[in-house]
Design a protein around this nucleic acid. Structure first.
Lengths: 290, 290
DNA sequence: ACGGCGTTGTAATAAATTTGACATTATTCT
DNA sequence: AGAATAATGTCAAATTTATTACAACGCCGT
């Protein structure tokens, strides 16, 4: 990476005058639909430009590449960079920190995770999931594992305000079988399971499934075995520059679900939230807002 | 060109269920930086995905292509089409969703929050906080409130692996005063308090402060009253297009702290993590990785 | 108009990539 | 637990692709 901010396209345009007739013809053909045409085989490019193959080979060498494959390689790198760029246009997030600082490295990874995660979600599926979760006609069960129970609880704490009949189950607790006694056809389960996938969670999902419950699964890119039982499955990217994974993308999804639920059940929510406020005031749990 | 509006990326995601382990691995690798990686030689793609070359060949056939070259050809066609389309439709996060969809609105807000939050943090302060949290010479207490205890617990679950003498206190539980009995000079408190700020949390912070403990506070942009007692204070932006706030930026900070702690205590962590793995294996809590 | 030089194309060679056959390993079902 | 089946990898053959050598063409100056 010796040339940082000089694309191949730039370089070609710069050289345009110094090029010969056939080469210019070729150059225009490359720029015509850049960079796609340059990523095909040399022969195809030559044909499209109506020049011979050696002309192509010679020109890429003139541009300073060892050969056509190297030329293509840089084109692909450009493409990668471009794909990342519009989102992560900050080379550093925290000013004054070297780009290698944990904060910057981690933030990059998280933003990337978010981008990939969102890219894989079909809005219809998401809306369907929210509708299920918000549907007060059926009880809602929220299930988390050893680490993920924090996400489960986060969802639970909000869902609890928005709608009635919500239960939080920890699959690592040994009390979970009791909860399943009452589960019936059409009940909704939101299950969190990221690697390392937990046996209890799978068992729980199997039992819920057997009783006719709908399952909405939040997992990672490799997908928990629960996914074969799930009606809807969201997989978040969780890779991070760390020995542990990042739950940030998952949290984003959860918060979006909460927001969407709230919109669906607004009439109810408003009422419930107000009653909750009152109760908080009475318990003096919170200070009055400044 | 029989498939009009169905990109290869779409098709791969659609088929994801029908694919086998190695193929899924490969699929993710292709989607990782799409479409650049798919435009290189088959060998390179296989290597990047850690699968054998025939696996790649087989999968592209499974996707309905005669061979790898034809697959690449369609990728290039897609690229051309995208380049021609002047509407850069990538101002949305989830393709196919209107920009007003919850997912897009929420994601925008979260990314913005992250930007603002990170922009306010001085790397030195962050490093100082991590050093304190990682310092095994003093016990570490982690405190959360009604909602924030999920963040607190997330930190706790990881800190627990990385170092000894970590305690999680819920300020909303009535057991917290007991924990404070043993607190002494130099003990470290990580406290989470976002609006609505909780009385219990403030009381707890006051007592800890009185006993000479160091306080690291995670709060929001308006800053909890605890901040006057805190040695270090991180304020995250938490605004979201929702009746509730977003914890995503806070989580990002927490995860960065975890990552940094781990680097500081690496020697210990490795050992502790290994012992933990053993115990997990013995309890059969998790399934063996597929 | 002719010789020289730079440019371009043809064809053969060399290198690489892709594909297919087979052995090995993992997984599923009984 | 073991047999059957599917999945995956290794290796070699075949095809495609890039490169090189060389011949032909056109252009320009004298």
């Amino acid at each position: 990476m010796a040339e940082p901010t000089l694309t191949i396209s730039d370089r070609i345009q710069q050289e345009l005058d110094r090029l010969t007739r056939a080469e210019r013809q070729l150059a225009h053909s490359i720029l015509e639909n850049y960079p796609a045409s340059g990523l095909g085989p040399l022969t195809a490019l030559a044909e499209a430009a109506n020049v011979s193959t050696p002309t192509v080979a010679r020109m890429v060498q003139k541009l300073g590449f060892k050969g056509y494959p190297e030329f293509q390689n840089e084109l692909r790198e450009e493409l990668k960079a471009k794909a990342k760029n519009p989102i992560a246009k900050h080379d550093t997030w925290t000013e004054g920190a070297p780009s290698g600082h944990v904060l910057n490295r981690f933030t990059d990874a998280v933003i990337n995770n978010i981008r990939h995660t969102l890219g894989q979600i079909e809005p219809e599926t998401f809306d369907r999931a929210c509708a299920l979760i918000a549907d007060t006609a059926h009880p809602l069960y929220i299930v988390g594992g050893r680490i993920t129970h924090t996400m489960a609880e986060y969802l639970f704490l909000h869902a609890q305000i928005i709608r009635p009949r919500v239960t939080h189950i920890q699959s690592t607790s040994n009390a979970w079988p009791h909860y399943l006694l009452d589960v019936g056809e059409g009940d909704v389960f939101v299950i969190f399971d990221v690697r390392r996938y937990e046996n209890n969670t799978l068992k729980l999902a199997e039992m819920a499934h057997a009783r006719g419950a709908k399952i909405i699964l939040f997992t990672d890119q490799w997908r928990s075995p629960v996914h074969s039982l799930a009606d809807i499955c969201f997989s978040s990217r969780i890779v991070a520059p760390s020995a542990w994974d990042s739950a940030a993308a998952t949290l984003l999804l959860v918060e979006s679900v909460i927001s969407s639920m709230q919109d669906i059940n607004w009439a109810d929510t408003k009422d419930r939230a107000e009653r909750l406020e009152e109760m908080f005031d009475q318990t003096r749990l919170f200070r009055k807002f400044t």
